[in-house]
Amino acid sequence: MDIRTPVATSYGDWLQKFEETWKSQIAKLTAKFGSAIEETRMPVAFATDVPIVYVKAEKIVEVLSFVKTDPDFVYDLLSDLTAIDEMPAEPRFEVVYNLFSYSKPCRMRFKVRVSEGQDVPTLTGVWKGANWAEREVFDMFGIKFRGHPDLRRILMDVRWEGHPLRKDYPLRGYQIFPTAMPVDPTLLED
C-alpha cells in the first residue's frame, strides 16, 4: 500500500449520517451567495472529515452570520478559529472556521484564503468569543483582522518580533525582556 496517495478514510460514520444535510446545505449556500463561494470540498472526494467551504475574504462575515441563524443550518457554535500557513503556496494563509450545530448536531468547516499582508474582516460582531481566537491567529501568523476591537498579541509578549507558527520562523532563538509588561491603564477605559 502506498500511503502517500490519499486513502479512502471514512473518518468515522459522519458521512452516512449527514451526507444529505451537507449536500442540501451546500446547494443552498452556492445558490444564495454565488461567486462568494470559491470552492466546496466534500468528504471522500477530498481527504477531509467534514465539507470545507472556501469563501471570499470579503464575504466571510456575511456567510457565517447567515449559517449561524438560518433554520436550515444553525451552526451556532464557533467551535474553533485558527489558521494554516501553506507556504510556498499563494495565497499563503488559510483562516479556518470550525463550526458546530448544536441542534443537528453536525459540523462544517469554512476557510478563507489570505495572502501576506491582506486582512480578513473580523468575526467579533457575530460571535464575541472570536475576539481572542483572532488575536491568537494574529499573534501566531500575523494575519490582521479588519475592525477587530483590540488586535494585540495574546500568547507572546507584546514586544515579541515575528510570528511563531509561520513555516519560515526559526525553531531556535531567544527574545528576552528584562521586565514584565506593566499595567496598561488605557485598556481599562470605558
Binding site: I3, R4, P6, T9, A47, T48, D49, V50, D80
Partner: peptide, 9 residues
C-alpha cells in the same frame, strides 16, 4: 506516515 487529509476530532 499519516495519509494526507485533515480532520477536526
Amino acid at each position: 506516515d499519516v495519509p494526507p487529509g485533515e480532520a477536526y476530532t
